[in-house]
């Protein structure tokens, strides 16, 4: 379940893949699907933020090296 505990990026991606597979197979009822979609959306959002954060951090580190 989402937000139960903070997942690592790798675990998040794994979870996303699982959800996408489940959606593709159209398993579960509509409410479950909706929850899955919501979870996947959240995961994507979080992962993106994480990536952006990482990108910014890296940029700043590389800038530090250059200066």
């Amino acid at each position: 379940m989402p937000n139960k505990k903070k997942l690592s990026y790798k675990e998040s991606i794994k979870r996303l893949s699982t959800i996408l597979e489940k959606l593709e197979n159209q398993e579960g009822d509509i409410d479950e699907l909706m929850k899955d979609v919501e979870e996947a959306t959240t995961i994507i959002k979080q992962c993106r933020e994480k990536l952006r954060g990482t990108e910014e951090q890296l940029s700043s580190k590389f800038d530090e090296i250059d200066n």
Partner: peptide, 9 residues
């Protein structure tokens, strides 16, 4: 990957 997942989703 995230973008394509989003599209797919």
């Amino acid at each position: 990957f995230l973008n394509s997942s989003e599209k797919l989703l």
